[in-house]
Design a protein around this nucleic acid. Sequence first.
DNA 1: TGCAGCTCGGGCAAATTTCCCAAGCCGGAT
DNA 2: ATCCGGCTTGGGAAATTTGCCCGAGCTGCA
Lengths: 216, 216
Amino acid sequence: MSEVAATGISVLLVDDHPIVRQGYRRVLESQGDLHVVAEADNAADAYGAFKAHDPDVVVLDISMPGASGLEAIRNIRARSPRARILVFTMHNEAVLVKAAFGAGASGFVTKSSEPSAVVGAIRAVARGERAMSDDIAHVLAEDSLSSGSVLDQLGEREIEILRQFAGGATTEQIAAYLNLSVKTVQNYHYLIKTKTGARTDAQLVRLAATCGLTRI
Amino acid sequence: MSEVAATGISVLLVDDHPIVRQGYRRVLESQGDLHVVAEADNAADAYGAFKAHDPDVVVLDISMPGASGLEAIRNIRARSPRARILVFTMHNEAVLVKAAFGAGASGFVTKSSEPSAVVGAIRAVARGERAMSDDIAHVLAEDSLSSGSVLDQLGEREIEILRQFAGGATTEQIAAYLNLSVKTVQNYHYLIKTKTGARTDAQLVRLAATCGLTRI
DNA sequence: TGCAGCTCGGGCAAATTTCCCAAGCCGGAT
DNA sequence: ATCCGGCTTGGGAAATTTGCCCGAGCTGCA
């Protein structure tokens, strides 16, 4: 089993959409050198699957119910520093990308990338290199020039909650989704408003939209 | 080439994520009776691809950059009323679902559905039936309590107040601006929410934005 | 070791939201 | 003419949320 590296790259797929996982699995396995050895549909299960299968690369979507995907990254990296994690998501906000790399990700690829680019990123990550898709590089480049966004003053959790909220989720839904008490979500809501200076929920939504946190 | 229908179901895949398309393609083709005859990565190209390949079913994600997926549905249906379109997306808001069916979709399935459910929906749609995943049925059922076509049901005053609110104005500001009591504005706020089915201020803002009531 | 910052939640008064209701007005139907 | 229905305007009261303060655990950093 430990000879997998000699015959190819073993992959753990983490995504909450079953059909998406199945699709990726087929795409990756058609490559010959990539083998999906396990799947997980939430962050909590991700580490268990990682431990059980010791894959060369973890490919995961960070937007999942339950614990945050960033949490999963930290979780895995904390116990297995040699783990290679490739974030694969539809989001392309600079804050998220930086948070992911900060949490220990080795790569960040958006779903709008060409399959060949994704596969290339997996191989690069497996070799221990850092990888990111062109659009992500572009976003990071833009961001590095113009710092000082309102989002910079917000913590990771605050941004996550703001995203959910601006997306139209109720306090209860957010609390359930993130496994927090309603009270905590309310407090974050308030905190975010004071930090950003928004007096109204509507202003908050507009703010989130202009920062690219949510699309309307 | 025109005998595809006799040997199975031809499918046009429309999704802006290349690897997602490729994944779906493999999942569908593994079914034996489903054949992906074309792909498109945006709403604008969808009709061209439809015309060129005349697929039995169009499977498309409505959340795409550029022209709306709803636009694509209308586009196709306007010129080819016999087209069968299955919306396949991660969104599950009632407004979207109703808009999709209103635009002429034959089915609506979320990406969190089991692959078997998705495949079943494609077959059902190909047979001319209407199809939707369980979660969508649930969302619509909830929503059917307060049906209606979103903005048309609002009066002049309600629309004016919604515009102000979505623009970021506070209740007091609106009341002062329109020479109304705060209480009246609050009541309108509530009325608008119930009429539109928005459960959250954020949803209200998004609604106003999508209706062109406010710019962000 | 200690400080700073993030995360998480309790508490509590003040404010807002949620509904229910009433009244005036106006246009259209009877 | 009259009545019905919908829009506009607001009161009232209960239920929730907000605004703000607080403490505790944790992590990173000096």
